[in-house]
């Protein structure tokens, strides 16, 4: 296998993880990864062996996702209840599960550009410079999205925790 394919295979699990966090739907996430790999393969001539392949791949996926989201517009993908990891069907049994679901729900409340930055840092451990390269904005913009996004998440989670106490 050549270096290019090796690089794609190396980063595929990362792409998949990020896609899952973005879409929160296993099927949709894998479609996104497949689209991304197909496009990367058909644009092999644009690949720079000495460049940052991870940022390049994430940028491709990022653009596809943004296009998909715009195309879907007001017509969200319909997801069978069963596919939601028992989100609605079963009561959560563990505290960590409750906390996790709150975070996932709170992430959905964020503007997409803030969510992306937060996820790239948390999941990929990308440096702010790499995030800027991936998303195609200035480093200062990354920082302000990160800062606003995290603060918003914190407030959403606090409100969630208060609501939980009231219910108890």
């Amino acid at each position: 296998m050549d270096t290019f394919l090796q690089q794609l295979e190396q980063w595929s699990p990362n792409l998949r993880r990020y896609a899952r966090a973005l879409t929160r739907n296993a099927e949709q996430a894998d479609d996104l990864v497949q689209d991304c790999l197909e496009r990367a393969l058909s644009r092999r001539h644009l690949w720079n062996e000495d460049g940052n392949t991870r940022a390049w791949l994430f940028t491709i996926m990022h653009n596809i996702h943004a296009n998909d989201t715009r195309r879907r517009g007001s017509r969200p993908a319909s997801v069978p209840i069963d596919d939601q990891d028992g989100h609605y069907a079963r009561p959560a049994s563990q505290h960590s599960r409750i906390a996790g679901m709150e975070l996932a729900a709170a992430l959905d409340e964020l503007p997409a550009d803030q969510r992306q930055v937060i996820l790239l840092v948390a999941l990929e451990g990308m440096s702010y410079g790499e995030v800027a390269e991936t998303v195609g904005v200035a480093a200062g913009t990354v920082m302000s999205r990160l800062s606003r996004g995290r603060e918003r998440l914190r407030r959403l989670m606090e409100e969630g925790a208060q609501a939980l106490r009231v219910v108890k």
Partner: peptide, 10 residues
């Protein structure tokens, strides 16, 4: 928490 939620996918 983000890592705990999605990290395993990789």
């Amino acid at each position: 928490e983000i890592e705990a939620l999605f990290g395993g996918v990789a």
